[in-house]
Simulated assay, not measured.
Amino acid sequence: MSTPAYPLAGGCDCRSVRYQLESAPLFVHCCHCRWCQRESGSAFALNAMIETERLRLLAGTPEWVDTPSASGKGQLIARCPQCRIALWSHYAGAGRSISFVRVGTLDEPDHLPPDIHIFTASKQPWVLLPPGTPAVPEYYERKTYWPAESLARRAALLAAQSKA
């Protein structure tokens, strides 16, 4: 697969809410935890982590829904107020500075395969993980798996937040 040209556009089913990723994401998680399975109604959730400042809203206004999470801190999910599709979310740990974009809402989701499979200890037994993609039973140490560029972007984001 070739490297995608950015920006990448996406949106909900009814096209009321449209957005674009201005750059490559920091990292793409394929999460197999039971919370993601329940929330997505599927075997896993595929989320592209990106700085919120690099996620541009093109049309519409998402509705924010506060939902519980395994951490007990919850997550805010941006949903289309018309068709109710979940577009992205903010987890308490990263706050609103990082968006977890639902890859399946991109116009061309094939461009963002998972960088890692997480919480595989609770994956559905019939899901076969591809060889060559890291997979961990729970969460992981960021410095072990993230590319240097993504670690630098995250460090810059944290530094800017500490000055604010």
Score class of each variant (00 low, 15 high):
F119Y: 14
P114G: 12
T61Q: 08
F119L: 04
T133R: 06
W126R: 00
H29R: 11
E39T: 07
P109K: 13
E141P: 00
C33Y: 09
R54P: 01
V101A: 09
S23L: 01
W88T: 11
W35V: 00
S99K: 01
G95R: 09
E138A: 10
D110W: 11
P81S: 14
P109T: 10
L76Y: 10
E141L: 01
A45L: 10
L57F: 14
T67D: 10
L76C: 07
Q75Y: 08
G93R: 06
A94N: 08
R79M: 06
W64H: 13
P130V: 09
S71W: 14
P114M: 04
Y91K: 08
Y139A: 15
K123E: 09
I50L: 12
R54K: 15
R34G: 00
P130R: 12
G72Q: 13
M49W: 15
D115V: 03
L112H: 02
E108S: 11
S99Y: 02
W88L: 10
A24L: 05
S122H: 13
C83R: 02
V127Q: 02
S40D: 02
G41A: 09
A24Q: 05
W88M: 11
P68H: 11
P114I: 03
C30L: 03
D66A: 12
A78L: 02
C33H: 05
P113T: 12
C33I: 07
L112Q: 02
Y139W: 14
H90N: 06
I85R: 00
D110Q: 12
A92V: 10
E39W: 07
V136F: 07
A94L: 08
G104Y: 01
P114K: 05
T105F: 07
V65P: 00
F44Q: 05
F100P: 01
W126H: 08
E51R: 09
A121F: 15
T144H: 10
V65F: 15
G95C: 13
E108C: 08
V103M: 00
L26D: 09
S42N: 09
Y140S: 05
D115A: 15
F119K: 02
T67L: 14
C36T: 07
